[in-house]
Nucleic acid binder design. Structure first.
Length: 572
RNA sequence: CGGGACGUAGCGUAGCUUGGUAGCGCGCUUGGUUCGGGUCCAAGAGGUCGUGAGUUCAAAUCUCACCGUCCCGACCA
């Protein structure tokens, strides 16, 4: 490709609405342009990178035995109602109506469609295992699109769905995808690692996310350097000790605490009740029902865990009015000892199990109770791990201190089980002649997000530093004079033609611009290798090879081609 | 959905407090100049000042509404 015939609108300055580095570089390097919030046009160079990543994913999916298909982006609502996600995923669904006022869904993912396919086509255990995948546009009505391609209303996703006749088979399918994902992200040049993850509205019971460490990541990851434990903060647990039992001092006496409505205030004089001796009582409304959640005063509720453990579809903190209606007091004086209606469930965090000599609200504004024993004074409905892990806590597996890091989620693998196959009737006949639901797994990669994650991780002060595997072009040939009859241009044309003939992805910067402009642009766009041809070095019969981010290397013109091939071979 | 900031030429921005001629840099066009890290000089083109209403003799500027963008939050009683 000749630069002058192409379309690479680079920018010296980044548009004001780009906040993070990778977003700015996407725009400055002329890879994408924004149409509106959360919607982007891929320009030629950006599209090339996208295709590179897609094809790399295809290679690895095919290698892992998955089979490519393409499903409709426009989907009927009835299968979404059947799976139950018309309601549970309602917030993210884009809905469209046709001329007869019938409602359709713009696909945010395709479990319903693939399971419908399986229901019709997979009749025998002999047809499994099978894994279908596609690379396609997905639509999600994000609460807040942000960071360019990181969280967009429309994005490219690779989604795969495995069908097995047994649980063991499903685990093997899961493992194949897990391994494939590791290969994919490694090949993209990304530092990445899998973490244990919550399953959210997708459902299922076993899941890993593939994370790319980045300060701008939207996820918080807990990990242990000693034993390799790693989990999303939404899922992470630690080996932190339970609350120490004490000699109990009394039997839950009420005492006045006028104006005290926070854990912190109660921990100060004159009350001086340390936060770790307080029970924090939260009222949530889960699927329209009030629920009490008990957490130790110095801990934080992990809402994701709460949702996962209770199976609630939606939950929110109760309003002060709802708190008063349920318990007779406003937030700040709430507790689970007195005046709790029998219909209200009390969920307690495991860390409080067996705790005594605790202080909590009395369900009377301005009063608390001291010397409370959980076992004796509170009718806990269920115990769960509900707290949020913090950095430095001992690892549950090896007791070494846990660390925390922000990361970008680029892939997610789920073991789904039979949730969708049962609801959408994907049953098969097993060897014993019995009808059973397919055991499913699903596996997603955010392709467009991965592209931006690479930029977020691979850059320097001058611009993007593409890993060869995903670079829009491998080589940029840069003649420093473009007059047709010049020796410089003739050599540039020759090298360009030879590389093209050899199948190397090469761009010839034939623009009549000053060298500085070309160098800046080449650095900004981030081609892995720049081959510069100028009068000075050519006078010595030399051309210049400059790996992006590396040092200049002068080579004899006649050796240039071999050197370029050697460079590319070493990088791939 | 709540809070905050912002909306002036393709991009980045000044002007708004104190109402009166819309300015700068980049980019773009033309001519010259320069030619190994975003040359320099000169001359140009390009703006419904987000939209609509209001106040006023007069609105980019003040008021209100709406639209859009970005950030934070939508958990901690």
């Amino acid at each position: 490709m000749r630069w002058s015939q192409y379309f690479i609108p680079t920018l010296k300055e980044s548009p004001a609405d780009a906040e993070i580095l990778s977003h700015k570089l996407l725009l400055r390097a002329g890879l994408v342009r924004k149409l509106t919030g959360g919607l982007y046009t891929f320009l030629p160079l950006g599209l090339r990178v996208l295709r590179k990543i897609e094809n790399l994913i295809r290679e690895e999916m095919n290698r892992a035995g998955a089979i490519e298909v393409l499903m409709p982006a426009l989907q009927p609502t009835d299968i979404w109602r059947q799976s139950g996600r018309y309601e549970t995923a309602s917030d993210v669904l884009y809905k469209a109506k046709d001329r007869s006022n019938k409602e359709w869904i713009l696909s945010p993912t395709a479990e319903e469609v693939i399971t419908t396919l399986a229901a019709g086509e997979l009749n025998s255990y002999r047809q499994m295992p099978v894994n279908f995948y596609q690379v396609s546009v997905k639509f999600r009505d994000e609460i807040r699109p942000r960071f360019g391609l990181m969280r967009a209303k429309e994005f490219i996703m690779k989604d795969a769905y495995s069908f097995d006749s047994s649980d063991e088979g499903a685990m093997a399918s899961y493992q194949r995808m897990y391994d494939a994902y590791t290969r994919i992200f490694n090949r993209c040049g990304l530092r990445n690692f899998p973490v244990e993850a919550d399953t959210g509205v997708i459902g299922g019971n076993y899941s890993h996310e593939f994370m790319v460490p980045a300060v701008t990541g939207e996820n918080e990851v807990v990990y242990c350097e000693a034993c390799g434990y790693a989990a999303n903060i939404e899922k992470a647990t630690s080996g932190i000790p339970k609350t120490a039992a004490r000699e109990i001092g009394g039997g839950g006496e009420k005492f006045a605490t006028p104006g005290v409505v926070t854990i912190e205030a109660l921990s100060k004089a004159p009350y001086s009740v340390p936060a770790n001796r307080q029970i924090k009582t939260l009222v949530y409304v889960a699927d329209s029902q009030p629920v009490l959640i008990l957490i130790r005063g110095d801990d934080q509720l992990n809402e994701t865990k709460f949702l996962a453990r209770t199976g609630a579809l939606a939950a929110r903190p109760a309003t002060p009015e709802e708190c008063a209606a349920t318990l007779g007091a406003k937030p700040g004086s709430l507790g689970a000892v007195l005046n709790v209606p029998a219909t209200v469930k009390i969920l307690a965090d495991e860390r409080l199990r067996g705790a005594n000599d605790m202080t909590t609200g009395a369900n009377e504004d301005g009063f608390h109770l001291r010397s409370v024993s959980i076992d004796r004074d509170i009718k806990v409905t269920e115990w769960f791990d509900l707290r949020t892990v913090t950095a430095g806590e001992p690892c549950a597996k090896c007791a070494k201190p846990l660390k925390m890091q922000r990361a970008i989620e680029v892939g997610h693998v789920f073991k789904l089980g039979t949730k969708y196959s049962e609801k959408l009737h994907a049953y098969f006949l097993d060897a014993d002649g019995k009808s059973k639901p397919c055991v499913m797994g699903c596996y997603g990669i955010g392709v467009t997000r991965t592209m931006q994650a690479v930029i977020e991780q691979c850059n320097d002060k001058d611009g993007i530093v593409w890993p060869l595997a995903v670079a829009p072009y491998a080589v940029c040939v840069t003649p420093l004079a473009v007059a047709k009859d010049s020796a410089v241009m003739q050599l540039a044309e020759k090298i360009y033609a030879e590389l093209t003939a050899a199948g190397v992805e090469v761009i010839l910067d034939d623009r009549d611009d000053r060298p500085g402009v070309k160098f800046k642009d080449a650095d900004l766009v981030g081609f892995p290798l720049r081959v510069s041809i100028g009068e000075k070095s050519l006078a010595n019969g030399e051309v210049e090879l400059k790996p992006r981010g590396g040092a200049v290397q002068l080579v004899k013109a006649e050796e240039a081609l071999a050197q370029i091939h050697a460079f590319l071979a070493a990088k791939s």
